[in-house]
Amino acid sequence: MTGLWVALGTLALGLVIGVVRLRRDGRMRETATDKPADVLTEGQIGAPLGERATLVQFSTAFCQPCRATRRILTEVAELVPGVAHVEIDAESRLDLVRQLDILRTPTVLVLDRSGKITKTASGQPRKADVLAALGTAVSQEPDEM
């Protein structure tokens, strides 16, 4: 009898988690404003920063949405001049993963031209959201001073 309730409870929990995740997955979030934003250097990401912005993608081999994310970000980087796409294997850079508190792959960071993290998305982002986030990253730079 207990088992029946456990089954029903688990099914209900699964549906709630699934719906919440569907809504949240891949949404671009502002980096917390109460602490200074992390700045990543070319040395840390192991590739040159984009002239205007950089999309840093953390991936693992055990990650299906990483491939789709790679496709989206590559397209965006080709579409928007001065934007670079850098993919980092999370497993070989666990130092960065811990420093930036990355819990899932894919996680996408949007860096402005100075390497400052302006937006973060965990899960596969929508192309429109990436483009919108790039808009802010690029326009924020002049009034940074």
């Binding site: 089954a7 688990t10 099914l11 699964g14 988690i17 990650c63 999370a90 899932r104 792959t105």
Partner: peptide, 26 residues
């Protein structure tokens, strides 16, 4: 129940809980 939760999320939403645990474990 834990295995059921993972299977349900995969079947109904296409989320692979086991896959995502990989990075956390690493």
């Amino acid at each position: 129940a834990a295995a059921l939760l993972a299977a349900l999320l995969n079947a109904a939403f296409g989320f692979c809980l086991g896959c995502e645990m990989y990075l956390l474990i690493r």
